[in-house]
Design a protein around this nucleic acid. Structure first.
Length: 307
DNA sequence: CGGCTTTGACCGGCGC
DNA sequence: GCGCCGGTCAAAGCCG
């Protein structure tokens, strides 16, 4: 079940798959924004009792990268072209613009293990452009030979005693697996909205059990439910919903930190390209995610709007 | 009774 | 080819 209400967190560290060939905002354009967002987010988060983990935890991040090593090594999310079958299934487009992170192919060479996300290698046959492919194919129906399609993923670490933080969306747990090299199981959740295929994985860091690593895959094509079960909507929702963390540490597909601060998406637009590899054009804003809604967009509960 | 969690089985990708 | 592992399915059970 979702945990008791109450976030009792202490820290949150965002990580995104925002590695990409989509250029990250340059330092100068970001510096001020960084401070701005750090201030802003820090204060907001602290309102909720969340503290942003600082770079001191880079080692954790590295560990995190290891957690997804397998995925990365398999070149899963590497290419969102064509794979980016948005989360909204048949909605056919209602979500398509609400793209996700500029996940994609970071070309930064490194020996580091990768963060969940992309490698730059992908079979060309997969990259047939987005929009033309059906939504994620259920594994059981998946055609033979067709690789699993990955949605862009966005992960962050939260210092919390509860595994599953309220994030404004309703999730149904559909699986739990023991994780290799970790005493803690990994839980798999799926958004309960039938049209939404967003998934999230929740696991604890084996090194620091107080750290919960949450990985979102896909993007919600609907609004959050607000205050689920009397729970408090958290910032997790805000970030998870749009995949545009305001305060983040960015890593490329190899787990190499690209920069710290506001996400590229935030610097340029709320909306991110679905296909960051072949097109850097920003998608049209969708009705669901107003372009200029600000960092937290419209999934921010009313109470948090004030600043 | 509906929605959700639990949990074992199953499947596919990958490395050896 | 085989085994490992991550991810998903689905039946069974629980709970409000």
């Amino acid at each position: 079940m979702e945990d008791k209400e109450g976030l009792d967190p202490a820290g949150t560290e965002f990580k995104s798959d925002s590695s990409s060939s989509w250029t990250l905002a340059g330092p100068d354009s970001v510096s001020d924004s960084i401070n701005y967002f750090f201030d802003r987010e820090s204060s907001i988060l602290s309102e909720f009792g969340w503290n942003i983990l600082q770079l001191d935890h880079a080692d954790e991040i590295e560990r995190f990268g290891e957690l997804d090593r397998t995925d990365a090594s398999r070149g899963l999310a590497g290419n969102f072209s064509g794979s980016q079958s948005q989360s909204c299934g048949a909605a056919g487009g209602s979500c398509s613009g609400a793209a996700s992170n500029p996940v994609g192919s970071a070309e930064v060479p490194t020996s580091n293990p990768s963060v969940s996300s992309s490698s730059s290698e992908d079979p060309p046959e997969k990259s047939t452009g987005f929009g033309g492919k059906p939504p994620e194919i259920p594994s059981k129906v998946r055609k033979k030979g067709q690789k699993r399609i990955r949605q862009p993923r966005f992960a962050f670490m939260t210092k919390s005693e509860v595994d599953h933080l309220e994030d404004g969306y309703r999730w149904r747990k559909y699986g739990q697996k023991a994780v290799k090299n970790s005493p803690f199981p990994r839980s798999y959740y799926r958004c309960t909205n039938s049209k939404c295929t967003v998934k999230k994985r929740v696991e604890r860091s084996s090194e620091d059990p107080t750290i919960v690593i949450t990985t979102y895959e896909g993007q919600h094509c609907h609004h959050s439910v607000g205050f689920p079960r009397g729970g408090l909507i958290s910032h997790e929702a805000a970030f998870a919903g749009q995949f545009t963390p305001g305060v983040s540490q960015f890593y490329n597909s190899q787990g190499v930190q690209l920069h710290k601060g506001i996400s590229p998406s935030t610097t340029q637009s709320q909306q991110l390209p679905i296909e960051v590899r072949e097109s850097r054009a920003l998608p049209e804003p969708t009705s669901q995610l107003p372009k200029d809604e600000g960092l937290l967009g419209d999934i921010v509960p009313p109470g948090m709007r004030k600043t």
